[in-house]
Amino acid sequence: MDAEASTSWPEVSSSGTPSTGHADTALCTWYNIFMRDIFGGLVIVVGLVGNGLTIVIMGRDRRKSSTIRMLFYLAIVDSLILIVYGIIAMPTPLLKLQDLYVEASNHQVISISVLSYVGQTLNQISVLFTLIVTWQRYVSIYIPLKAKIYTSSDNTNKMAVAATLFAVIFFLPNFFHNSFTTDSTGELQPLAEPFSKNSIYQMIYSISLLYLFSYVGPIVALIVMGTTLLQNIRDSFKKKATMKAKEELTLSLVGVILIFIICQSISPLRRILMWVYAPYHIAVQCGNVLFFFGPIYLISFLVNSAANFIIYVLFARGFRRKVFKFIRRNRRVDPVQQFGLSWTLAQNTNGDGGPIETSFVHPC
């Protein structure tokens, strides 16, 4: 699947279905298998394991900190993204390798017209959750007197629900862009609905609003807040040799923001390339100029949803200790002890009227 959620079917395939399966050379076939199935599969496995550990560790203490609560929610959404985009990316090259071109074509049709929109909806939720957790961290540092109100558990849950509802409602029209028919060979043929081909609709909704809410707005906000948070970390580090737990948490969020910006930038870059190398579905075919770029769009979503756990392990010492402790305890033979784990989390106040916040640091 090489189509973006905002891309109309006439832009994807002039013949109605993704083509080029029979024309793939060995290099093209194995490049797709490596990128989508081998590398993509590895990212999915690592991401699901990492997000699973994050859910277990942070889920136990999500009631003690709004930041931990949002990171817990974010790990759940990222896991769903890995599953959906894994289903989109992996089957097609394997089906083509077995000469199942009708099945591969049908999988591409379903992926482009249905699954991609599910993935885009989940990605929008992930974008908003990242924005919320960064804003909460910003408030707790720079507006501490308001932090207790703004980052309370109730407000955190309300923001998470509102972000989810907004993403679902915003992407809902995409699911009605196409209807389907089947030709004599058994291949699904998408039929674009008239409203989805309207140039005004595409310009306002599929391009302007989509990138405003999914990329431009969040990226600008994250850059501003991330830069400010990073400056706070630098100032704190100059005053002392080591960082406290809350500063490690802030540094972890800065790392999440950086990976987010890099991975999410692939989508607007792809849109620009679609304009420059129109028609795009020809440009990404085997042997053409954008063939090697094609799978990177999908891989960027996988990497973005799998990277957070690695960032937490690298920058948050307490979280890293808890991961190792969890792994060691689950290696024990006695299964009874696994259900009697005692998870003691250090708590600290920000010292300036902010809320009590669960840290990643194991108590000494």
Score class of each variant (00 low, 15 high):
4 E>Y: 10
4 E>T: 13
5 A>I: 12
6 S>V: 08
6 S>Q: 15
7 T>Q: 08
7 T>Y: 01
7 T>L: 02
7 T>C: 05
9 W>H: 11
9 W>R: 12
9 W>M: 11
10 P>F: 03
11 E>Q: 09
12 V>D: 01
12 V>Q: 05
12 V>K: 03
16 G>V: 09
18 P>N: 06
18 P>M: 06
18 P>S: 05
19 S>M: 08
19 S>G: 10
20 T>Q: 01
21 G>W: 10
22 H>K: 08
23 A>N: 11
24 D>H: 15
25 T>G: 09
25 T>A: 03
26 A>T: 15
27 L>Y: 09
27 L>P: 03
28 C>S: 13
30 W>R: 08
31 Y>L: 07
31 Y>S: 04
32 N>R: 13
32 N>I: 05
33 I>C: 03
33 I>K: 01
33 I>Q: 03
34 F>A: 03
35 M>T: 12
36 R>L: 03
38 I>P: 01
39 F>K: 00
39 F>C: 00
39 F>E: 00
41 G>K: 14
41 G>S: 13
42 L>Y: 00
42 L>G: 04
42 L>T: 13
43 V>K: 05
43 V>G: 01
44 I>Y: 05
44 I>L: 06
44 I>H: 08
45 V>W: 03
45 V>F: 14
46 V>I: 14
46 V>R: 09
46 V>Y: 07
47 G>E: 00
47 G>T: 06
48 L>C: 12
48 L>A: 11
49 V>T: 12
51 N>H: 04
51 N>C: 09
